[in-house]
Design a binder for these strands. Sequence first.
DNA 1: CACCAAATTGGTAGCGCTGCCAAAAAAACC
DNA 2: GGTTTTTTTGGCAGCGCTACCAATTTGGTG
Lengths: 356, 356
Amino acid sequence: MVATRWSSGGQAGQPPQQSGSNVTMEFKHQPTVTLAEVAEAAGVGESTVSRVLRNHGSFSGKTRERVMAAVERLGYVPNRIAGTLASTGSRLVAFVIPSLSNIVFPDVLRGASAVLEENRYQAVFSVTDYDPGKEEALAAAMLAWRPAAVMLAGFEHTEGTVKMLRASGCRVVELLDLDGDALDIAVGFSNRAAGRESAAFLLKRGYRRIGYVGHDLKRDTRAGKRFSSFCETLDAHDAPLVAREILEGASSVENGRLGLERLLARTSDLDAVYFSNDDMALGGYFHCLAEGIAIPSKLAIFGYNGLDIGRAIPQPLSTIRTPRVATGQIAAQLVVANAPPQAVDLGFELIEGATA
Amino acid sequence: MVATRWSSGGQAGQPPQQSGSNVTMEFKHQPTVTLAEVAEAAGVGESTVSRVLRNHGSFSGKTRERVMAAVERLGYVPNRIAGTLASTGSRLVAFVIPSLSNIVFPDVLRGASAVLEENRYQAVFSVTDYDPGKEEALAAAMLAWRPAAVMLAGFEHTEGTVKMLRASGCRVVELLDLDGDALDIAVGFSNRAAGRESAAFLLKRGYRRIGYVGHDLKRDTRAGKRFSSFCETLDAHDAPLVAREILEGASSVENGRLGLERLLARTSDLDAVYFSNDDMALGGYFHCLAEGIAIPSKLAIFGYNGLDIGRAIPQPLSTIRTPRVATGQIAAQLVVANAPPQAVDLGFELIEGATA
DNA sequence: CACCAAATTGGTAGCGCTGCCAAAAAAACC
DNA sequence: GGTTTTTTTGGCAGCGCTACCAATTTGGTG
């Protein structure tokens, strides 16, 4: 694998080049049409226009027509900033997520975004990189937009974050975890149960010398919960974890591959390895493919997440499939409906696959 | 691969269950602290508080302390909705993206989000599902938030979208494409060049009987551009495309696998296959693994995107690596700097890999 | 045609903050 | 000490819209 060359003119990081065209175009905001102007043009009052546009309150058919005509003619676009300020409660929903590299979060956003768009809500987001301090800062910044709800990953937040969210008066949804006390609404599944069932499955299949390959557990606390209950279950069945390899940094296929390589270098007689998630597990799978390690006869592999790609490899990956998109959907539905505080358990599905 | 059971209490899709706890908690917005209250508490004027908080204009050290103390004591959180309305120009940046399933877009968001957060901008997004009509509707909804900029994928938009964006007066950034006329700013690379170079590479390697497996081209116009210039290049070298298999729906590993299977069923004597992207190519790769088709001696595989996973499989995938994160970063930087209209070519990198 | 209820409509006070301007206080200077 | 500058301050008019309320029109009734 060789990087041959960079192509097509510009190089990344170079000062941007300008296209030949219109360099002197608009730079500042041009005067924008307001509700008052529409009202004037339509020959009606401001509140009437507002009512027509929101289809709220009563107005006659011909008033409606005149207003819509004026809106069309002037190219009016309502200003939701002003609307939100004037009314009570915004239609913004804030997502404070750990990462966009881990497909889990785009999946959640995808589910939520579909529901929110249908209900004319707007999603805003920021990324914490799994840093609780950054989470606090970003949550604070989010609250400044007075969202209808803030959605966060899991239950582990700084005191400051919790205090702020409590005081904010907006809905709080904690996602993808159920092992802990919810601030308001929680939607997800139990990571402890997932760890437990993964262990139980491997034991049931007769594996006894089990190892673990994972990524940074202090940051990804949900992975940490899976791992600890996985170990507890092994202990309870008298087959304690034989070896572990924890890699710095985020989960990735490459880290999974590297992790398994290192683990086996130290402890070669394992019969199964539990990975912190499917990305890592795929790395392990590829390592075995490349090294000619027979799966699952020589070594079994078990992941977590149930990514689609796990079903497309020659031997379907044994894993636990989590309802990530549904988590986003349900969370959004509850927010839209202003549902009472509750914890919703979406469960998960154990996929037996062919690797364990 | 068998789905054994759903676990841990709840079932997905079932009516949400309530946790035993506090069902009667807060439902409506609690009174929130305003700037005026802080001013009162600190014994200064409103504008003074505003100046201190934004660190703008002048004020004495002790005034600053008193204000900050009051802010702390009351737990004041500035209201950016009001702030934005009162000032000129918002710090919202709107992303109207085709998909969150295709990793390309989370990658772009990731790059952009980092830069935006540093500059105290806020990202908002919505997802079009590659539907130009939906793009128009969502762009309109976005403009209602009076963003500083709207970021879209590519150049193919409806007339209505273009008109609206032009009239909006806000900055427009078109991402991931360079083959067309930009409305304002464009950041990306040439998909046509990518298609051309992919073809040139395969030809240079001596492949002559080349096929294509792709996903829905009408929707993903950038993939369409790559494909058409790929074909033109083959034609120009007297080795026209031998066969193609276009699958409905989004790109996925499974579709790639299925596509190659179908393609080979019809045309078995190909020596190389070009895929619409790496997801599809990985599917093809796995198909070959499963069927024992030797790569690249019996069949070569070439992708597009340069996903990390392509480097972790036993034979690194031959592909073109695109600067997705950088695209987001540069785009965000240009917006933050209010740069003049321009087209920035970030180029791409051809990875020779081991599959072609 | 007078009279009352229902359906429409317009006026206007904010929503919480910023930007401008003039007033007040502090510092510098003669 | 008296000015002139410079630095700090507070007041207040909006930003564009919604919510409330009162005014007006419409429609029906007796």
